Simulated scan of single mutants.
Amino acid sequence: MSSLKGDFGRGLIVVGPVLVTLVLLYILYSFIARFTPAVLINADVLGVFLPGVNEFVLAQLAAVLRVLTFVALLCLAMYGIGQTTDTTTGEVLEGIVDYLANRVPLIRVIYNASKTATETALGAGDTLQTPVRLETWNGLRMTAFKTGRTTTDGRVLLFLPTSPNITTGFVLEVSPEEITELDETVEEALTRVVSAGFGDADRAEADIDELSLSVVGEMEIERGPPKK
């Protein structure tokens, strides 16, 4: 019975995220397909270029084309806005948006939370820098990230994210000698935090295998060839 539950659990771990991703993509696709206007791309317009095709197929194809067009335009708009923010005008406009959003109580909470989450998830390479290991209390060590900023008394500002939700956490002021930089990238450290520590399983197994091979190799070298 335990073997059956274990196999079912492992299968659920593999299939579950895939199903959740597909459901979310379907919901997003359905929303965009209904949101985009069907004035330019509809079944009647496609019927001119694809005569003889079933009307239902034309309607579904038109919905797909509307979604692709919307996504393409959205990507172009975000790219253009991103290019604009690098200029002085873009910085001024961003400051105005921040100012207006922070004047409304409810909008302020949603805006700041979504902005922080986006900056942490998508802009990790810019907002979070070198991952470090920090010993907190009683020998307990935690993974944190340098923010690139220091206090007036020379302490390093660290961001200590929670697991598995990295959009929340703590800002710590730590002396430089109390932290140890890790020999890994920001993405690798974030993967470990987001996966609640399971993201290092493959790496740990590889290290164990490499260690075993090294030990076996050393034993064979010390033992030498068999005596005749």
Rank of each mutant, 00 (worst) to 15 (best):
T85H: 11
D86Q: 08
T89N: 12
T89C: 13
G90L: 12
V92A: 13
L93D: 05
L93H: 06
L93G: 13
E94C: 14
I96T: 11
Y99R: 07
L100F: 12
L100I: 12
N102P: 03
V104C: 04
V104H: 03
V109K: 10
I110F: 06
N112D: 08
T116F: 11
E119T: 07
E119S: 04
E119M: 04
E119L: 06
E119F: 00
T120L: 13
A121S: 12
A121H: 06
A121E: 11
L122K: 04
L122M: 15
L122E: 12
L122D: 05
L122R: 11
G123I: 09
A124G: 02
D126N: 13
T130F: 14
P131M: 07
P131G: 12
V132R: 01
R133I: 10
R133N: 09
L134K: 00
E135H: 03
E135F: 02
W137I: 13
L140K: 03
L140T: 03
R141S: 14
M142W: 13
M142R: 10
T143M: 13
T143D: 06
T143H: 06
A144H: 01
F145N: 00
R149F: 14
T150G: 14
T150Q: 15
T151S: 11
T151Q: 15
T152Y: 07
T152E: 06
T152P: 07
D153R: 09
D153E: 09
G154Q: 14
G154M: 07
G154W: 10
R155A: 10
V156G: 02
L157D: 05
L158M: 01
L160F: 00
L160H: 01
P161D: 04
N165C: 10
N165E: 10
T167L: 08
T168C: 05
G169S: 06
F170N: 08
S175T: 14
P176H: 02
I179L: 15
I179S: 03
T180E: 09
T180Q: 08
E181G: 08
E181F: 12
L182Q: 12
L182H: 04
D183I: 04
E184Y: 13
V186C: 00
E187D: 08
E187K: 02
E188G: 08
E188Y: 03
R192C: 11
V193N: 01
V193R: 00
V194K: 01
V194W: 00
